[in-house]
Every structure is written in C-alpha cells, then in structure tokens.
C-alpha cells in the first residue's frame, strides 16, 4: 500500500498536478480571507487599526462575563441593502459565576477612576493574569503577564453602523491587562 502511494505521489509530483492543486487551494483561501477583511473595512469605513482595537475591546468587555476561546472569535460585518450588521461569533467555554463577574467589574471600575487620575504613566499593580482578564487575545499568555500599553479609549464612531452604536459606548470601560 505504502509503496503504491509513494509511486503515485512521485508520478503526480512529476506532472505537477498535485502541486498545482495544493498551491491553488492555498492561494484561494488566502484570497478569501484577505477579501473578507477588506470588505469589512469597506462596508464600515473602519481602518484596520480601529477594527483591531474594536476587536480587542469587545474581547475585554465580554471577558468580564464569559470565559471564551478568544483565538476563535470572529468579527464580521454583513451587508444587506443599506444596512450593515455586526456579526460576532464567539465560542463560549463557560459563563462566569457572579463573584467572578463582580470582581471583573470592580476591577474595571477601579481602573477607570485610576485612569482619570493618572494619565499615561505605568504603574505597578500586582495581580496575576487570569486568563479571564486578558485584554487582548493575542498578546496575553497565561504564564507571563507582559507590560502592556494602555489602549486608547476613543473609538471613532463608524459611519453607517447606526445599529451598533450602543456597543461602542459600553466598550468605553476597558478591562486592562495586568501591568508590571
């Protein structure tokens, strides 16, 4: 069996059909993903930077209430006629219990007042980085909390996104990552 597949693969490689199929598939998915992102930008008039920021802040917000798989969080804008809808798909691992939620909310509140007092200076706050309080999916690993820049709080209001404006207000409370 193995021998046959070997021979088949060698022959296929020789004719480069298999190779081309693989390359074609790859570039197709590259194209699809690039296009999705670009269309999202076009439909909402948001720049990549703002989108990434928005994603991060949504993760912060939802992390207060849910434990979720941040890597798989999908943020999409779908257009139907004149209306743009924000589609958010998040694999939820579990809902947090009340205490955890309260803790997260308190933390966010204290940070908010803290932010008002001190503007940009880095302060040391000794708290372990629980995965529920990560402020960004990519940058926070559970083992080593990294010093992190404060996110800017302003999100420019997207034109043509009337339906979603409330979400932006709520996002103003930013759950910050542990700062060292």
């Amino acid at each position: 069996m193995g021998l046959f597949t070997d021979i088949y693969n060698t022959v296929a490689k020789f004719f480069r059909q298999q190779d081309e199929a693989v390359i074609g598939e790859e570039s197709k998915s590259v194209a699809t993903n690039r296009l999705k992102l670009v269309l999202m930008q076009d439909r909402t008039n948001l720049t990549p930077r703002v989108l990434e920021q928005m994603r991060g802040e949504l993760v912060d917000l939802l992390s207060k209430y849910l434990e979720m798989d941040k890597e798989l969080l999908e943020l999409n804008f779908e257009q139907e006629g004149d209306q743009v809808a924000l589609m958010l798909s998040i694999p939820v691992i579990r809902a947090k219990d009340e205490d955890e939620i309260e803790e997260a909310l308190n933390k966010a509140n204290s940070e908010e007042s803290f932010e008002e007092e001190v503007s940009e200076e880095t302060e040391s706050k000794e708290e372990s980085c629980e995965d529920t309080e990560c402020s960004s999916a990519e940058e926070c690993s559970e083992e080593e909390p990294k010093p992190k820049k404060k996110r800017s709080k302003k999100v420019s209001t997207p034109e043509g996104l009337e339906g979603n404006s409330e979400e932006h207000h709520e996002e103003e409370n930013i759950c910050e990552n542990t700062e060292v």
Binding site: I23, G24, S27, K28, V30, A31, R34
Partner: peptide, 8 residues
C-alpha cells in the same frame, strides 16, 4: 496572475 492576485 490569478494566484499572484490572490496572494497580493
């Protein structure tokens, strides 16, 4: 050209 466009 198609592949190159796909990949940018």
């Amino acid at each position: 050209i198609i592949t190159s466009t796909n990949k940018g």
